[in-house]
Simulated assay, not measured.
Amino acid sequence: MIVCLCHRVSDRDIHRVIGEGVTNFELLQDLTRVASNCGNCLDCAQMIFEEACAARGCGEKHVHAAGLTATAAP
């Protein structure tokens, strides 16, 4: 499924990047440009990111606050 229409980023792209070791949403944005243009996909992209990280046991806890994602210690 396409998550970000502006940059044609799919849920598969997000899963692939997480599989390559990315565990930080901002780094995901830097690499894929997801949710970096109009922002309409931000919630969906974050949800997919969180689910993929949880499924892979990324080992970090990601905290959402006012549309921002920060990484906190487990």
Rank of each mutant, 00 (worst) to 15 (best):
F49Q: 14
L31A: 04
I18Q: 12
R8M: 11
T32G: 03
V17H: 08
S36V: 02
T32K: 01
V3D: 00
A35G: 03
A45V: 07
R16S: 14
G57R: 00
A73Y: 07
G59E: 08
C38V: 00
R12D: 14
S10M: 12
E60N: 11
V3W: 02
P74N: 04
A72Y: 01
G59A: 02
A70G: 02
V17K: 14
M47R: 07
M1N: 08
H64C: 10
H15Q: 15
E26F: 13
Q29K: 15
A45G: 07
A65D: 05
H15E: 15
R16T: 15
H15T: 09
S36E: 12
C44G: 00
G39W: 06
F25G: 03
H64I: 14
R33S: 12
G57N: 01
I18V: 15
G21V: 14
R12G: 14
P74G: 01
A66W: 11
R16N: 11
D13H: 13
R12P: 03
D13R: 11
I2L: 09
A65T: 01
G67Y: 13
V17D: 04
D11T: 04
V22M: 11
A65Y: 07
R16A: 15
T71D: 06
R12N: 14
V17T: 11
V17N: 05
R12T: 11
H62D: 08
H64P: 05
C44T: 03
F49S: 11
A70V: 12
C6V: 09
C6P: 09
N37D: 05
S36C: 11
A55S: 14
T32A: 04
A66F: 13
N37T: 09
T32M: 04
A54T: 12
A65E: 03
A70I: 04
Q46D: 00
A73D: 07
G21M: 10
G57I: 01
S36P: 02
I14G: 10
E51G: 03
E51Y: 10
C53D: 01
I18T: 05
K61N: 04
C6A: 15
P74V: 01
V34I: 05
I14Q: 11
R56D: 05
T23G: 08
Q29P: 01
T23S: 06
L42A: 00
L27I: 15
H64E: 10
C41T: 07
P74C: 01
I14A: 12
D30M: 08
N24S: 06
H64N: 07
I14P: 09
Q46H: 02
